[in-house]
Design a protein around this nucleic acid. Sequence first.
DNA 1: ATGGTAGACCTTCTA
Length: 259
Amino acid sequence: MRLATWNVNSVNARLETVLAWFEAASPDVAVLQEIKCIDEKFPAEAFERLGYNVAVHGQKTYNGVAMLSKTPMEDIRRGLPGDETDEQARYIETVVSGARPVRVIGIYLPNGNPIGTEKFAYKLAWMERLNRHIRTLLPLEEPMVIAGDYNVIPSEADVEKPKDWLGDALFQPESRAAYRALQNLGLTDAYMAADGAPGGYTFWDYQAGAWPRNNGIRIDHALLSPQAADRLVRVDIHRDVRGGEKPSDHVPVVVELNL
DNA sequence: ATGGTAGACCTTCTA
């Protein structure tokens, strides 16, 4: 089974590009972030024509996540539990059916900039809520993948110019510690476990020539439960997509599991 | 040195 995660930075502004990639790469399951539209505006029919079942947790203008699966989805959950007042659409969870069902979670973790504001506090609170919710799922002992835009640079190996990011929410010690805390629950960073090499970036800013200078960061991750990690085959970062027509600032990451 | 781009949408926010 091949599972993709991709922050598309508006699914409708980039629909042709996104569909072309799906036709070529044809992942079995995909989680999309920053679709930037409400459920009714999501181009579900276009994905259905490619053979996908579609589940959306949308939001006007900002955020929004979607789940695509070639096999039916069960037990769809929209929104991260733990705060009834949180209206931001950043979480979708389902069990993808098949010979070996897999619980797939798509996240768009808050950016958190600028630090020292309520936005950074929201980021850390969201990560704590995610940690709490995952703790309730791990006892199920299922193959589980938590994939998405984590907005966290885990280490200095994951950023071309570490000094540029010292004051940024994505590289704060608290953000990195919260990402490690997730792994410390028993989750595996798929890219690192699959012999991911330094410089495996997934995001290059639109500004200041970040792409031609390769001023990138690795912030799109897939964390695997033990039952999924045992079946990890490989991880591919589709880096070339960043150099294509009208690109997102993120590129797709594809995780292959022997499931 | 404090830029620079992109998307949604309407004037500015988010990233």
